Amino acid sequence: MRKLSFFIPVILLFSACEKDISVDLPVEAPQLVVEGTFENGMYPQVILTHSLNYFSSITPDILAKAFVHNAAVTVTDAGNNVMTLKERVIDSANTKFYVYGPDFTGGSARFTGKVPGTYTLRINADNKAYESVTTIPSRGMRLDSIWWTLVQVDDSTKARLWVKITDAPAFGNYGRYFTRRNREPFLPGRNSVVDDQLVNGTTFEIPVDAGVDKNKKPDVSTDAFFELGDTVTLKFCNIDKATWDFWRTLDFAYNSNGNPFSSPTKILGNVSGGALGYWGGYTVSYKTIIISR
């Protein structure tokens, strides 16, 4: 009874202090959101949307209306060649996406990404100008090999993917990875970036989690592993620090979602002019492995 006599006054104390609190949250004006990528040997792709308020309801109609149309978008290389990007629509699973890519009908220059290369993205949208610079870097981190090991997860046998990477002697190399399972799309890992702060100039081995669809509810107990019989392709990319900063902070925010003890995270974009998002260059390598049954 001593324990009970202690808790009852505490409960009464907190119940006596109850008070309804109403907080008026400000409605922020929409901001331009940029998702731009440029890979070696490929043409650039840029997706432009307007941001939504944190407590906005999400419906297919609202998402469709978030795309920004009729923007003026160009990419300039180090030789001052200017490529105009034109908006096109992509139908995918009954959903329309709008992407800015090279204009094959106009007379502007067209070029694919080179290693190394420096590229400037310029956007005029909503009567505002935005700009960002990225690099497609040299292969400071080299993907040497991939393999798999068996692991027991609950009552089933799964496969864990491993990689061997060699880092160049100079500090300041950054990477990001994606995996593809069979014919599924490439997906980034829950923590998709790596840097050479602790492994500079060495050859190191690390486990690699399977990529995840971040639009779906995560299952932390099984998401990291592959099934026996899977054909797995690893897409490993060298990136610059600005691209690494963006995905490092975004991955942290995603993994902290719902954790009341996590600190607020500022997403570090690299687009000037007040836009959110990033413009990132990727130097890409691929390796494929079959996980035997």
Rank of each mutant, 00 (worst) to 15 (best):
V23R: 03
G201L: 05
E205M: 12
G274I: 05
A109K: 15
G113V: 09
V82S: 01
N70M: 02
P9N: 02
E35W: 06
L187G: 11
D91L: 13
V151F: 03
T222Y: 01
A64T: 06
F14D: 00
A78I: 11
E205L: 03
N127C: 01
N40E: 09
N173R: 04
E35N: 11
D240C: 02
E28T: 15
V115C: 08
G280I: 04
I165A: 00
N124A: 12
L198F: 15
D195A: 12
F178R: 08
F171R: 13
V271D: 03
E227P: 05
L52H: 13
V208C: 03
L63V: 09
Q197I: 14
R248H: 15
S138Q: 04
K287T: 09
W148I: 06
N182T: 06
I290Q: 13
V34Y: 06
D240F: 07
P185D: 15
I146N: 07
D213R: 10
V212D: 02
P26G: 13
I123N: 04
V46M: 08
F225L: 05
Y177W: 13
P260S: 05
I21T: 09
P260N: 07
F97Y: 08
A253P: 08
S156Y: 11
L4Q: 15
I90Y: 11
T135G: 03
F14S: 02
L234Q: 06
L85R: 04
V27A: 08
S263M: 07
A253N: 14
A64S: 14
P60N: 09
G175Y: 00
F204W: 05
D20G: 00
K217F: 02
V27T: 09
S15I: 12
